[in-house]
Simulated assay, not measured.
Amino acid sequence: MKRVFLLLFFLFFVGCEKIEVYKKSKDGKPVIFKPGEVQCVECTMQLETKLHSAQAIMPNGRVYFFDDPGCLAKWYLNQKEKDKIKLWIYTDDTHRYIDARKAWYKLGDKTPMNYGFGAYEKKVAGAVGFEEFLAMMARGENMTNPAIRKRFLEQK
């Protein structure tokens, strides 16, 4: 029994890489990260790329990372002082971080957590604004919902 405990202790504490849940931003701008260096605060998945990622910067400079726009929405809907949080989203069309409140969101993209909302700087057909995107996520109208996924795939 003691050997099992020691093995588990070793594997868990010694064998784990340090993965950060947050970093700091001094100027309120998005933070650069390396693949596998940070994880999503909502689903705890490691971020391997900027594609589909988002960042929330709190008033104290703490930066929270998200691997999927849907994770950002789920987290954001539970925040109290929403207007004090800076939100950045990496766009599929211009491949840069922009203000998430100004982005357009289109259902049907392949995203890490399969919520299916791609973010765009320029409006594309079928895209909705930030508030409608949040409302759709709150209602469960995303690609993780089998009824929505089926209806969406039938339209193609």
Rank of each mutant, 00 (worst) to 15 (best):
A100H: 01
A100I: 01
K74F: 01
D27Q: 12
E131H: 08
C40V: 07
K50W: 07
A135H: 06
M1F: 11
R139L: 09
V38K: 01
Y64V: 00
K23D: 08
L8I: 13
D99P: 05
K2D: 10
V31L: 06
E17T: 11
M143K: 00
I148T: 15
A135N: 13
K2S: 09
E17A: 14
M1Q: 14
G126D: 11
D68H: 12
A127H: 02
V4C: 11
R139V: 01
W104H: 10
E37A: 07
Y115S: 01
D27P: 00
E141Q: 12
V31K: 07
D99Q: 11
E121I: 07
G70D: 05
F10W: 13
Y115R: 04
V38A: 01
G140N: 12
K106V: 00
G15V: 04
A73K: 03
N78L: 13
K18E: 02
Y105W: 09
F130A: 08
V14W: 12
K24T: 11
A119N: 11
E131S: 10
L107G: 03
K74I: 04
K34I: 07
I19W: 02
I19R: 06
G116Y: 00
I148M: 13
F13T: 08
K18L: 04
I148H: 07
A54F: 07
G126E: 09
L153N: 15
T94S: 11
I57L: 02
A127R: 05
M136H: 02
G116F: 00
V124R: 13
A73Q: 01
N114A: 11
Y76P: 00
G116H: 00
E154F: 07
F9M: 15
T44F: 08
L8S: 14
E131A: 09
E154T: 09
C40I: 05
N142W: 01
A127P: 02
D99G: 09
F130P: 01
V38Q: 00
L72E: 03
Q79E: 11
K50N: 13
K26Y: 03
G36F: 04
Y22M: 09
A147C: 08
T144M: 15
E17Q: 15
L77R: 14
C16W: 08
G118F: 00
T49H: 14
L87R: 02
G61E: 05
R101N: 07
C71L: 12
D92W: 05
R3M: 11
Y64D: 00
L6V: 10
N78H: 14
P146Q: 15
D109W: 02
A138N: 15
E132A: 09
N142Y: 04
M58E: 12
Y64C: 02
V21W: 09
D99K: 13
F9Y: 15
D68C: 08
A54G: 14
M1I: 09
G36V: 04
V128Q: 10
D93W: 04
Y97L: 06
V128H: 06
L77M: 15
G28R: 11
R101T: 07
M45C: 03
F13P: 10
E154L: 14
K18Q: 06
T44S: 12
E121R: 11
Y76M: 01
C16N: 13
E20P: 02
Q79I: 03
N78R: 15
Y105K: 14
W88R: 03
T94D: 09
P69M: 12
L77S: 15
P35D: 13
C71K: 13
A100E: 05
K80Y: 04
E20H: 14
T111K: 00
C43K: 07
K122M: 10
